[in-house]
Nucleic acid binder design. Structure first.
Lengths: 234, 234
DNA sequence: ACCTGAACACCGTTCAAGT
DNA sequence: ACCTGAACACCGTTCAAGT
């Protein structure tokens, strides 16, 4: 009856923590509890280690976030450049990026704040530049076109998945809905198109893209970008 | 010799704090010390009050940030819709937004994370919608075109001013520069156009738009958007 | 190499109490 | 109405020390 078998302190008799485990756990926390819920201490607890163990594997919090975004970039499945025309390739790629980041809306919403030179970012750039170059953009236009494509895709996603404050209770949400509905009676154009705008247009939404996707607008926006590029290509 | 005049604890024999003062001080801290340096406690100290005084005027930190972004939106000087064609109005407005947010790059970089229905946001939307409507966009296209314009402008700015990590020392910067320069030797298209891409294209920059503006790309990007809209307008 | 254990210097937020 | 003063429950990060 005496306890001969000591209870294991951890569910798995763990082998050393890996950087990958740390990154995955961080993504998991953001996805389930929100961006603001990610803390080095909470992450350590989740992994049954002391906080300083995290620092050993992933540097500090800023570097950890950089690694997280690298991971997401790596998971994006870009289409084959050989089988598509440049404009079709861009449209397909844009959808692929949106699909991947749509799985992690709280991270997508903060993509903007990340300016980091990463290997996965460089490979994405190489791909886009190659396709545009083959598409016939001149040497002077190439950087301009590339920046346009990048900003159009990632800028859109940042905006679409921008998150409501985490502490927004149901009460607050219904208040917002009411507030918008009332304010716009003073704004004739909005009011006239209220049915097609409410909760479906920027500044007029009370839910993020996670709950109220803007798929039609996204596709229109990407087509606008591609058609504009065609027209300005020299 | 005895001190008869008590030293004032504050430089001004202050009248009550105003919400506006709090917001202005918050913007000041972000502009001078960076986004991460903004804390409710630091802000309180700057204003010579206890932290709880801030809460009285501006709610919590999330609400304070919302107020900050409202303030920036209000400061944007949009052109007169009567004197310009719809496409010129959009190009001029886009530049106005970029100019205003360029004064506060650390806030611009985090614009994306803000999803809040605000009165200044609604007014911006009304203006854009009015111009597009007069421009001849159909009822079904109006929300799509509006979302496209909004995301193109604000998404771009978020990306352009995305900030490097605050703790980036000079050493780190030169390391990045070297790292990029070396990595791209394996990436033929990037390598071929390295002179026009390095520090001037997304994912290939080691400085934010504050230090290395992307003005030419911004203007090209906005023209692409406008030309695309013209082409898809029905 | 990988992690423990503890410490330091901070945070955001709440709340009773003052004036 | 506007703020003080103090408390609570957290943070990120560092560093010596262990194995």
């Amino acid at each position: 009856m005496s306890s001969t078998i000591p209870a294991p302190e951890r569910n798995t008799p763990r082998q050393p923590l890996s950087r990958r485990e740390v990154i995955d756990a961080a993504i998991g926390i953001v996805d389930t509890q929100g961006f603001d819920a990610l803390s080095m201490r909470g992450l350590a607890q989740e992994l049954n280690v002391y906080p300083s163990a995290i620092y050993w594997h992933a540097g500090n919090k800023a570097q950890l976030l950089s690694l997280v975004y690298q991971r997401l970039m790596e998971d994006i499945q870009l289409p084959d450049p050989e089988t598509l025309s440049w404009d079709e390739w861009i449209l397909t790629s844009a959808s692929a990026v949106r699909t991947e980041f749509g799985k992690h809306p709280d991270l997508a919403a903060r993509w903007g704040s990340q300016l980091q030179v990463t290997s996965s970012g460089l490979e994405f750039a190489e791909q886009v530049l190659k396709v545009l170059s083959r598409g016939g953009f001149s040497d002077v236009q190439l950087p301009l076109a590339y920046n346009t494509v990048s900003a159009a895709i990632f800028g859109w996603i940042t905006a679409e998945f921008a998150t409501e404050p985490a502490d927004a209770e149901e009460e607050w949400r219904t208040y917002l809905e009411k507030h918008v509905s009332e304010s716009i009676t003073q704004l004739p154009t909005i009011n006239q198109h209220r049915n097609s705008l409410l909760n479906q247009a920027f500044s007029l939404r009370w839910e993020s893209g996670q709950k109220a996707p803007l798929k039609a607008s996204f596709e229109f926006s990407m087509r606008v970008m591609v058609e504009g590029l065609k027209r300005l290509k020299v």
